[in-house]
Amino acid sequence: MKRIIVKLAAVAFAIASVSGVAIADAGDSPTLKRIAERGVVNIGHRETSIPFSYIGPENEPIGYSIDLCMKIVDAIKAELGMDDIEVKYTPVTGQTRIPLIANGTIDMECGSTTNNLTRQKQVEYLPTTFITGTKIASKKGSGITQIEDMNGKAIGLSSGTTNEKAIKAVIEEKGLDVKVVPVKDHSQGWLALETDRIDAYGSDDVLLFGLISKSKDPSQFQVTGRYLSFDPYALMVQRNDSTFERLGRVVMAGLMRSGEMKEIYAKWFEPGPTGINMPLSATLGTAFEVQALPD
């Protein structure tokens, strides 16, 4: 029976992936090795992390993080000496992104993921590409400016995010009576806010501005309150693959050194295709400079 299962899995595998022939030299990197063997790089993306990683008008993932990942894909092609590497996209959520990197389903995660020390037990991060933190979005006129105003009200939180933990911790610490409604992803959370299922949605402030910029009537919503957490974003790669990780770091440092990073930033944020309009902050500008390591 086991043999049959393995056979079926192999058949399924063959059907699902048209693989290339391994010719290139991947060195000691498991990630590069499997990319070379199959001629495919698997990228994990988000569906509504605007403007980092979301489904664009052409039904393909686009965004700031996706553009950065494409630079790394170029570097992978150069490293392996292969011109035709296919990019395959796998959608991930707050809940699936870390296990999918850990088990190798995706080679890179290009979304809006906070780099923290707990997660570094499971995955590895490239240099910081954005700095944000948890805030709450509500409808204007709701009288909500801080999490403390939400006694007796409902807040939506996306499962598996740092925001979920940060806001639950504040609620517990202050003994607030706030109902937490778990949602699958930002789209579901935003929908819940728009349809009055919840009074506020908690997420990274930049993502909240992104969701507002894409909503039917942006003037209806506000992002308020103090930062409830510190969230530096970075692209995720697999742990224990220092060769591949270094390749990513080389690309990112290069972009920061040449100033191309700021151009890509401007493309998505100043004001960006959805009109989010967030000029480069002094902190992030400094972070780019600090991380622009010399060759």
Binding site: Q95, P99, S159, G160, V181, P182, K184, Q188
Partner: peptide, 16 residues
């Protein structure tokens, strides 16, 4: 899928 934290959802939360 609509945010009810029953047995299967709990296991996902433990994983998180």
């Amino acid at each position: 899928t609509i945010g009810v934290v029953e047995l299967t959802a709990m296991t996902r939360q433990i994983e998180e």
